[in-house]
Amino acid sequence: MATADDRSMHTPDGTSHANAAAGPTRARRIAVPAITVAVLLVAWEIVVRAGMVPNFLLPSPTQVVAALVGDSALLASHAGTTLVESALGLVIGVAVGFVAAVLMDRFETIYLALDPLITISQTIPTVAIAPLLVLWFGYGLAPKVILIVLTTFFPVAVSLASGFRSTDPDMIDLMRTMGASDLQIFLQVKLPGSLEQFFSGLRISATYAIVGAVISEWLGGFSGLGVYMTRVRKSFAYDRMFAVIILISVLSLALMRLVDLLERVSMPWKQEEGK
């Protein structure tokens, strides 16, 4: 049957609108920030080489790269420890956050009980609680993983709980007219409908995981990027200090990209919505 559906999809100038809304091209999106970073690095190099800042206080970018390459084997071994702690903490943190969000959605009493507690827990500075965890659990893996769990469960729990609560009540009514159980409503509607919020939370948690691991390593441990950082700071090796900072940034970015990739794979319909 010929309906107006197809007619309503086209506008005479639809293409020009689409181009205007598309924004900068991909090449431009990559080139502009790349050039900005390159200019800043060159300026930094010039400032250090010209002696405007004493070299023992600020190493030049080339010195940092040299330190990164020179210490690569040692950095890789420390990074391995940090990544294991981060991954373990993140997985447990996400699991705890997920369970908390589900319970808060299912039982209003639990929501009312946990909501303020979760918010309050995030006002406690990580650096303040880390020494306590070391005191209670020693210098091993446990205090580091616990600290990461404490920092990573929050974004996931809050974003998921908000996703669950924002489910369209009409959708829930419709499911009930189909005879759906609470579990079916959760699995078919609430959970897929909250995936976008979940990944927003997970992206934040992923960055917290690496930073949380490094902070906990500052306060005690035998291996990890935080331990390495403390050692090079004490020996005033600022080129290595910058090298490890760059490595931490790269690891955090890589983890965020991994979350983006996971999001794209898990939500194929979002690709179509953008077209």
Partner: peptide
């Protein structure tokens, strides 16, 4: 007792993820 008659709303309420 829901589930005995069908219901359709103004919004199509198709699930975006399906």
């Amino acid at each position: 007792r829901p589930g005995k008659v069908s219901y359709m709303l103004q919004k199509d309420l198709l699930i975006p993820s399906k």
